[in-house]
Amino acid sequence: MSWNDKQVETWVGLMLRTGVLLAAAVVLAGGILYMIQNRGPRPDYSRFQGEPVAYSTLHGAATGIATLEPRSIIMFGLLLLVATPIARVGMCIVGFAFERDRMYVAVSSLVLVILLYSVFFHR
């Protein structure tokens, strides 16, 4: 393993840990608010209905944070969490580019395209 590889990996590790802890903190904050505001009986999860648009679209989850509605805060935390591995692949592209490894810049770019396609377009 070259010196470059090691340096990139240290950066990647730091980013991953920060991303996960940040996401967990946001989810926890939303969770505490959610518990304060929803004291009734447990919601019925035994029959699948699908979540409403506010919690099942990128737009809904990203804009809902502004309303500080507890479930929207949780969803925003989940988006942060999903973004960490995607950012990791992005950092690998940069790392391989520094090493002038064109083949693996292409390989990681393909993985990134698949991930972005999944998040934004896949039906």
């Binding site: 409403p52 099942s56 929207s72 896949h122």
Partner: peptide
């Protein structure tokens, strides 16, 4: 993690992610 992130988008749009759960 990367593999799971590939499914997350469709799970979100299909309404599988119930925040309270």
């Amino acid at each position: 993690g990367v593999t799971a992130a590939a499914s997350a988008g469709l799970y979100l749009r299909s309404g599988y992610l119930a925040p309270g759960l």
